[in-house]
Amino acid sequence: MVKLLRLDERLIHGQIAIKWSRNLGVNRILVLNDEAAKNDLIKKSLLMAAPQTLKVAITSMDEGIDMLNDPRGESLSILVLVKTPKDVLEILQRVEGIKKVNIGNYGRVASRIGMDPRKTYRNNLYLYDSEASVLKQILETGVECVYQTTPEDNPESINKII
């Protein structure tokens, strides 16, 4: 079962390893990112950042979506991490039963279109208009979608932010 689907451009890092994984009490972390799945260096660094106490898989989007649709996942408690709003939407469209989307960190290190800066929405949320419209599409799927960087932060509904 997917406990939470989180948008975080840094994928696995301190906030995930120390705060979220404990707060949610998950026993699996699944990272869906085509670039990381192909690149051994990225993969190994992410594994180093992950907590030792749970199992982690780093897969391409297609592979990961297959895994999320695997019935064996029902008994697990999974935290799913992706890097872009587009990937969040794709997962929601291709995987059923995801109830919660968390927008954690986005737009600070993600590659830019030319020199144009992203618009600031929150401290850790920067979006181009095209990306904001992807978030709107995410909201249209009816999923609960909140902006919350760490479990201690107050969750804010995305439809109030955008």
Binding site: L30, L46, K55, V56, A57, I58, L76
Partner: peptide, 11 residues
């Protein structure tokens, strides 16, 4: 040979 091995994920 990696611990991110997908096969072990459901185990």
């Amino acid at each position: 040979s990696k611990s991110s091995d997908e096969k072990g994920f459901f185990a």
